[in-house]
């Protein structure tokens, strides 16, 4: 299995001289399974544009494009690249788009496809030449075209329904865990607070701990985990609680507990320059902090072979 990171930035694309090394494109990861001629793409952030260009050059000559995109959620940084993914304009392309939706009144097709309406874009979804099938996902095992690859989805704590994926092929396991904040007890735990309720506070604590434990189990013994680590713990505690993202320290600690071999810290904050990410690498990516788990800040263009 070959994994290539086409976009690793969170929130919004941020090209410029300060983001040359780690990249400015928003999330898009490609998984290639050459023996079974299958490709899985996770998220359609701005990074998918370059992936699409690459496919036009290298794949199209072998026959029509037939691929699958798994969306982690429908926030714009994870779907904005789709209108710039050239294969969708080709007759013969077959594309399956899997993803979660929060409310049954909005279909995945509408949420994603409405980016291609005249208010936002010159081409409408209905005018695309390719065949696109939308499949709405729930937590649990995902049914795809064959059983060679096992994909399991897990509910994450984000401000919209968001799924992590565990992808297993032969004896290798890759997990994605973004965008994701640790589950928190959001109920008041201060007995002096007029709205304090002990039962609510205790139940909240128990639920948050249980959900975080389930996430740890989801990552169990994976060969590679690609995980949201948008802030430092200091930034998180100061002003980012409830924003739906994790701190680097929490991501390392809880992934380590799950016995994971390699951790890619992902979804970098747009304010993080290459220099800042280099500094964070020095601070966190060492055996004192990460133990035996190889840990690095994801870079656009990076390839990992498992």
């Amino acid at each position: 299995m070959k994994i290539k990171l086409w976009g690793v930035r969170g929130s919004i694309p941020c090209p410029g001289p300060d983001t040359v090394k780690y990249g400015g494109n928003t999330p898009c990861i490609e998984l290639r399974f050459n023996e079974i001629n299958r490709q899985i793409i996770i998220d359609a952030g701005s990074g998918i544009r370059e992936l699409g260009n690459n496919m036009m050059v290298n794949d199209l000559s072998k026959g029509p494009i037939n691929t699958e995109i798994f969306l982690t959620h429908t926030h714009s940084d994870h779907i904005m690249g789709l209108p710039f993914f050239p294969p969708i304009y080709l007759k013969g392309t077959k594309l399956k788009i899997y993803g979660p939706v929060s409310f049954e009144n909005d279909t995945l097709k509408d949420i994603i496809g409405n980016q291609m309406s005249y208010q936002y874009f010159p081409v409408r979804q209905i005018e695309l030449a390719s065949q696109i099938d939308y499949i709405e996902l729930k937590e649990g095992q995902v049914k795809t075209k064959d059983d060679n690859i096992s994909i399991t989805a897990k509910l994450l704590n984000h401000s919209v329904l968001c799924l992590g994926y565990r992808i297993e092929y032969q004896d290798k396991v890759v997990c994605t865990l973004y965008d994701s904040e640790p589950f928190q007890n959001i109920f008041s735990i201060d007995p002096k607070d007029p709205s304090y309720d002990k039962t609510m506070a205790d139940e909240g604590e128990k639920t948050a701990q249980m959900q975080n434990k389930l996430l740890e189990n989801f990552l169990k013994d994976a060969d590679l985990v690609i995980r949201d680590a948008q802030y430092t713990e200091e930034e998180y505690q100061a002003s980012k609680k409830g924003w739906g993202h994790s701190s680097i320290e929490y991501a390392i600690e809880s992934t380590k507990k799950a016995g994971v071999k390699r951790l890619a810290l992902f979804h970098h904050d747009p304010l993080y320059s290459d220099r800042k990410l280099d500094e964070l690498t020095k601070k966190f990516c060492n055996p004192d902090t990460t133990g035996n788990m190889e840990t690095f800040f994801a870079k656009e263009g990076m390839e990992i072979i498992l």
């Binding site: 401000s159 959001i186 959900q211």
Partner: peptide
């Protein structure tokens, strides 16, 4: 949407799992 092993019948649990925004 949520493939939970056990039915959730506690609103407190549901609020933590779904989040304030949802």
């Amino acid at each position: 949407y949520y493939c939970l092993r056990n039915q959730v019948n506690s609103l407190t649990q549901a609020i933590i799992m779904l989040g304030l925004n949802t």
